[in-house]
Amino acid sequence: MLGTTRETVNRTIQKLKKQQAVVMAQGGSMHIHLEKLRSLLPDTPVVPIDPQKDHFIRTHAQACCVRGCHEV
């Protein structure tokens, strides 16, 4: 949802919470239930992520989240 408005992101998260695919934990961290999320998207193929891309994404997310004072 890159380039989207905050309102759209909030609305999408609220829908996922109602469908119990996302649960907000104490302290503001978000727990994503992958199986539930996958069940909501039955026609979407599951493509394994390239290990190098995964490392890149996690490294940058951790750096961002450390600076932003929240958990990955």
Rank of each mutant, 00 (worst) to 15 (best):
A21S: 02
V22N: 04
V22E: 00
V22P: 02
V23C: 00
V23Y: 14
V23M: 05
V23T: 00
V23N: 05
V23R: 12
V23G: 12
M24A: 11
M24G: 10
A25W: 02
A25T: 13
A25M: 06
Q26K: 04
Q26G: 03
G27F: 05
G28D: 01
G28S: 02
G28V: 07
S29K: 03
S29N: 15
S29F: 03
M30K: 14
H31T: 05
H31K: 07
I32P: 01
I32S: 02
I32R: 05
I32H: 02
H33T: 03
H33G: 02
H33P: 11
H33A: 08
L34C: 05
L34P: 10
E35I: 14
K36C: 07
K36P: 04
K36R: 03
L37Y: 09
L37T: 14
L37D: 11
L37C: 01
R38V: 06
S39A: 14
L40Q: 00
L40M: 00
L40T: 01
L41S: 07
P42C: 05
P42G: 10
P42H: 15
T44F: 15
T44M: 09
P45E: 00
P45N: 04
V47W: 04
V47L: 06
V47P: 09
P48K: 01
I49Q: 06
D50G: 07
D50K: 12
D50Y: 08
D50I: 01
P51C: 05
P51W: 07
P51V: 10
P51K: 03
Q52C: 11
K53T: 13
D54Y: 10
D54R: 15
D54G: 13
D54I: 08
H55I: 11
F56P: 12
I57N: 08
I57V: 13
T59W: 01
T59N: 06
T59R: 13
H60L: 07
H60E: 05
H60Q: 13
Q62F: 11
C65A: 15
C65L: 10
C65R: 14
V66C: 09
